[in-house]
Design a protein around this nucleic acid. Structure first.
Length: 274
DNA sequence: GTACTTGTTGAACG
DNA sequence: TCGTTCAACAAGTA
């Protein structure tokens, strides 16, 4: 599942490879992934230069010439794959970017949840206002004080689903929210108002530490995630609780337990997470 | 055949 | 209005 570290990894690779390149054409092979509509998207993406690649939450933003932009959301199983030599599209290739220099990028997505969204100049701000995204956890301006203020807004929330709430904080999903709780030694169902000062501090430190470490390892390939070059992320061996239910805790003598919270699988160590 | 997996949306609830 | 939970979406994997 692409979360902040995975999406940021792809952003950096895209920046290196296609910033400044020109898209000759974009072909949406599966119309449902094209927004607002296949015809308009393909029309608007003819012969446009990519100025830069940005990321906000789990969204990739292609900044294009003439203040146009293209948003890419990978959702659960989306991939962007750079092909330096001509390749046949696979069964799950939903769109193909063809560059003026002959390279292509495939947008593959088994589950068809991902999308490509064209935004005309001006509608960019509207889109992000509607999204109501919370702050970026790795921004230098996101201090402990800012985090603490954020916690005060939701005193009654359970910490793990709150970490996954994109309108509260951006970019954290089901994998890293569990890892952050483990690092903090706090159970995922803990109510925010019961968190002590030192636990809040560990939450803040752990969040930054884990997201940075995972990004440095090019993300976690727990499902189908691979980077722009089709390579798996290398963070999985460092995951402490995600996908480890029934296994011994890596920190104490406990056994990792799995529960369901807000409809999502949630693993934690009942022994060292309180 | 059935259960399970997940990011986001929108509906439903209190 | 707000916070929260839950079904739905889709399709591969166990």
């Amino acid at each position: 599942m692409p979360e902040l570290p995975e999406v940021e990894t792809i952003r950096r690779q895209l920046e290196r490879e296609i910033s400044g390149a020109t898209i000759a054409q974009l072909s949406a092979r599966l119309p449902r992934i094209a927004r607002p509509a296949k015809k308009l998207l393909e029309q608007e993406m003819r012969h446009v230069r990519i100025e830069s690649i940005e990321r906000r939450a789990k969204l990739l933003i292609f900044r294009l010439a003439s203040y146009k932009s293209l948003i890419v959301h990978l959702k659960l199983t989306g991939r962007l794959l750079l092909q330096s030599r001509p390749q046949e599209p696979g069964p799950y290739t939903r769109a193909v970017f063809s560059f003026a220099d002959g390279r292509t990028i495939f947008f593959d997505d088994v589950r068809q949840f991902g999308y490509l969204l064209y935004l005309a100049p001006g509608s960019f701000e509207d889109f992000f206002l509607k999204q109501k995204l919370g702050p970026e956890p790795l921004e230098p301006t996101f201090t402990f004080h800012a985090f603490n203020q954020l916690l005060k807004k939701r005193p009654g929330a359970k910490i793990k689903p709150l970490l996954m709430d994109q309108t509260w904080i951006a970019g954290i999903g089901n994998v890293y929210s569990q890892e952050i709780c483990f690092f903090t030694k706090v159970r995922p169902m803990r109510i925010v108002r019961t968190l002590k000062e030192e636990e809040r501090r560990r939450l803040y430190d752990g969040m930054k530490k884990i997201l940075l470490a995972a990004t440095a390892k090019l993300g976690s390939s727990v499902d189908t995630y691979v980077d722009l070059y089709g390579r798996a992320g290398k963070y999985v061996p460092f995951l402490k609780v995600y996908g480890r239910a029934g296994n011994p805790c890596k920190r104490c003598a406990g056994v990792i337990r799995q529960v369901v919270m807000s409809g999502r699988g949630t693993a934690y160590c009942p022994s060292c997470q309180r």
